[in-house]
Simulated scan of single mutants.
Amino acid sequence: MAEDAHLSRCRDILASITALGAVLTHALLADMPELGAMDEGQAASLAVLVSVTRQSGAWRGRSFAQGGRATVRRALYMPAMMAMRFNPDLKRVYDRLIEKGKHAKIAITAIMRKLVILANALLRKDRL
């Protein structure tokens, strides 16, 4: 990665985000090479951070995430926990969701989604 100027720049951009460590930075670069070339909904869907609602007529099942890049989703969990504690903007998002009565896992998934969207936006704009 140090030999490739583009990958090195992308690594520096991702490392500038609070709570993103080396493991997640490398996981995003390796498993989502198209990051930075998509819109925010596509990036979240690719990482499977968008829930699918099961319903038929009046029956409603629980929402779930299916398909996509599970390795990215697993790598995002602990950085999302750290971001929810130490990033003031993401902490406000988490607290707002909990106050609305959302389950903690759903709120953490929302933080994971925000991290992917932020990473995608910064890479697209080539900004630290």
Rank of each mutant, 00 (worst) to 15 (best):
residue 44 A to N: 03
residue 125 K to A: 07
residue 5 A to R: 02
residue 68 G to A: 04
residue 28 L to F: 02
residue 118 L to Q: 10
residue 36 G to N: 01
residue 71 T to D: 11
residue 79 P to A: 01
residue 114 K to F: 02
residue 126 D to S: 12
residue 127 R to M: 11
residue 65 A to Q: 11
residue 70 A to M: 07
residue 18 T to W: 14
residue 62 R to M: 02
residue 82 M to K: 13
residue 5 A to I: 08
residue 125 K to D: 11
residue 10 C to M: 10
residue 77 Y to A: 02
residue 32 M to V: 09
residue 70 A to V: 04
residue 81 M to T: 13
residue 93 V to A: 06
residue 43 A to W: 01
residue 22 A to S: 15
residue 75 A to L: 03
residue 86 F to W: 12
residue 62 R to I: 10
residue 77 Y to I: 01
residue 33 P to L: 01
residue 33 P to E: 06
residue 82 M to E: 12
residue 121 A to F: 05
residue 77 Y to Q: 04
residue 61 G to F: 00
residue 60 R to C: 05
residue 123 L to M: 02
residue 67 G to S: 10
residue 71 T to Y: 10
residue 50 V to G: 08
residue 108 I to S: 12
residue 28 L to M: 13
residue 12 D to R: 15
residue 7 L to H: 11
residue 127 R to F: 13
residue 68 G to L: 10
residue 127 R to Q: 13
residue 14 L to K: 06
residue 64 F to Y: 15
residue 42 Q to S: 12
residue 107 A to D: 11
residue 92 R to W: 04
residue 19 A to M: 10
residue 30 A to H: 07
residue 78 M to V: 00
residue 103 H to L: 14
residue 4 D to I: 04
residue 125 K to P: 05
residue 79 P to M: 01
residue 127 R to N: 12
residue 35 L to S: 01
residue 10 C to S: 12
residue 52 V to Q: 09
residue 17 I to K: 14
residue 123 L to C: 01
residue 77 Y to C: 04
residue 74 R to C: 03
residue 57 G to N: 08
residue 123 L to E: 06
residue 72 V to G: 10
residue 31 D to K: 07
residue 125 K to V: 00
residue 29 L to G: 08
residue 73 R to C: 06
residue 78 M to H: 05
residue 49 L to C: 07
residue 80 A to Q: 11
residue 57 G to W: 08
residue 109 T to F: 00
residue 35 L to V: 06
residue 47 A to H: 08
residue 58 A to M: 13
residue 79 P to I: 00
residue 54 R to K: 14
residue 94 Y to R: 05
residue 17 I to W: 05
residue 60 R to D: 03
residue 12 D to Y: 02
residue 73 R to H: 05
residue 99 E to H: 11
residue 85 R to L: 00
residue 108 I to W: 08
residue 101 G to I: 02
residue 33 P to H: 03
residue 92 R to I: 05
residue 92 R to E: 14
residue 111 I to D: 09
residue 59 W to E: 13
residue 117 I to T: 13
residue 43 A to S: 00
residue 76 L to Q: 05
residue 4 D to Y: 07
residue 38 M to N: 06
residue 22 A to Y: 11
residue 55 Q to W: 05
residue 118 L to E: 14
residue 123 L to P: 04
residue 113 R to Y: 02
residue 47 A to D: 03
residue 46 L to S: 12
residue 93 V to C: 10
residue 59 W to F: 11
residue 4 D to G: 09
residue 118 L to G: 03
residue 56 S to Y: 13
residue 92 R to T: 10
residue 78 M to L: 00
residue 36 G to E: 04
residue 2 A to P: 06
residue 77 Y to F: 10
residue 126 D to L: 03
residue 1 M to D: 13
residue 41 G to P: 09
residue 12 D to G: 15
residue 111 I to A: 04
residue 95 D to T: 04
residue 88 P to Q: 04
residue 33 P to D: 09
residue 73 R to P: 11
